[in-house]
Design a protein around this nucleic acid. Sequence first.
DNA 1: TTGTACGCGTTATCAA
DNA 2: TTGATAACGCGTACAA
Lengths: 348, 348
Amino acid sequence: MFCGKKWGAQDLATNIRDVAKAAGVSVATVSKVLNGYTTVNANTKERVLQFVKELQFRPNSAARSLVGRRSMTIGIFLTAGLAHPFFIQILSGMEQALKSKGYDLIYLAQLSWNKEYSFVRHCQSRNVEGVVVFGFQHEDMNFNELVESGIPALFIDLDVREKRAGFISSDNQEAVKRVVDYLVGLNHRHISFISGNKDSYASRYRLEGYRAGLADAELPYRDDYVAEGDYTREAGYDAMNRLLALSEPPTAVVCCSDMSAVGAMEAIAEAGLSVPEDISIVGFDDIEIASLVRPALTTVRQDRITIGRKSIELLDELINDSELRPTETIVPTEFIIRDSCGPAKPKP
Amino acid sequence: MFCGKKWGAQDLATNIRDVAKAAGVSVATVSKVLNGYTTVNANTKERVLQFVKELQFRPNSAARSLVGRRSMTIGIFLTAGLAHPFFIQILSGMEQALKSKGYDLIYLAQLSWNKEYSFVRHCQSRNVEGVVVFGFQHEDMNFNELVESGIPALFIDLDVREKRAGFISSDNQEAVKRVVDYLVGLNHRHISFISGNKDSYASRYRLEGYRAGLADAELPYRDDYVAEGDYTREAGYDAMNRLLALSEPPTAVVCCSDMSAVGAMEAIAEAGLSVPEDISIVGFDDIEIASLVRPALTTVRQDRITIGRKSIELLDELINDSELRPTETIVPTEFIIRDSCGPAKPKP
DNA sequence: TTGTACGCGTTATCAA
DNA sequence: TTGATAACGCGTACAA
């Protein structure tokens, strides 16, 4: 059976009254000291702080958020679950900022998609001050409810410009344009694109970059050179097979993720061709696998640490300034050249 | 500036009083309905539940935990940070159990190692009901404080048997013994072991398994065949180079992680040797990379989903039964045979 | 400069 | 079977 709120035999958690008693002042004074009021005598302040330290006092956050002060809690809202290979790197970036801003991170595990459940209500019941959202589309359930709730929200990889909501993403368009420029410089004239989920924000802008790169080189845009994927290895494999079946297959392929690039390379190997001699491949993300695979993958590195850190910093601004206009932040990428690209084969 | 606790123009969060008013009953009655008391009329119960649904009422968890009821919050305590490649898979397993038990997960980001900071106080101030701990050693700071605090704790990969604390891990010893048996079956007589951090719990028991396997095959244990690593690729690379420098290098190597196996394979390739023709390699974990690398890595799969799920289930038991004796749980592993092992070369 | 007293939203006790 | 009310720990007007 559950045996009360505390864990030990007796309640050991010191509260503000213990500190007040020890320091010989009132609880109000202790509270003022802790909340940075200047209307308190330097000596008493000193004394109070000393006992706070001695008794290892930490204000109970439940009581604190109950009286209407801050809960110092940020929620994360993920469609893909915590273990998403890309998101997890973002988390490390978030850690630093969370720490320096003093937030703890709460993962609302109860998330479910049935009608009874409301993510917003869940946040409210937890007194969450703001949320980071990842893996979302505009059409998804709960989206409007979230945006309209006025809970400060920061979206990763989804362009949301609403009151109290901002977003952050890599410079997808510029990144892919640079990749195409690079391939053009290697004399490629038949360049394909394997997309991510077709209406995901990131994939859309990467496609734009692809078109811009072609336009810049005065190369025609061909529908059949764009193969739809969904960021996965399997989708990359299938997409590549479709491209190989064309009467005039591409000599270079830009993929929307490293995993789909790996899948594409497998398809190429199965077709008896080789990378980069026959076909050049470029990935996206620079996950660990990119440098492990053979040939090592030329790819676009997303600065996930910065994305994570900035997410929290921006969310913190959104929380602290209710009048802030919608913010959007684009994080530069880095082009990592390894071994999966080579000069285009001269026409036979 | 910060503008009050709520996000919108007015406070929209319905509370228990709103529900009571709407249903024409007292707050006490609503509370009883919500907490499963049977001393409430079926009709009123019905009415109350209807308005709870209609108003989308969710009890404020801060208020709830303040009055001494449960906070439904579980903390995680990691030395390695959230992005640890192994831990992240465990998280997915935890998700399911958290959801079904009704917990949310809080990551105490403020974690720091200075003297002022007390992890236990942090948990108490957040009313955390229990913690999952990963990446810890017995000697680590805060360890005693945590164990003595009486906060229910579940350790992953660390053998802790204390009041209110239990642990879970893979069957490390058995797993490695089976690997050695397998290699012996391939006629290997010179089998090395690349360890993880030498005093980590997992590495210690894997070493035991290695010794047991050798003993079983009546093969001598040689100190110089055990190379210390720390689970990383770099350490695996270095360790392998030390093994290759022996006057009688091993023909098979058991590694404590897939990443160190990858490092070892790189060292072997650089030495002009090949896997598995010259040297057989076995990894541990079966992370995604294991199947991507060439040759695909033969390895031990840890059932991370089960480890994660059981962590929460066990912790839940620890939370709900203060008299529970220390629990320990060993999760079976699976031996995954791929392409990195072959028969031992006959002596020249 | 300090202290008293009320309220935050909920649960538990006890009287009705 | 229901309702009034005292906690829970803290922040903050307002009084001293």
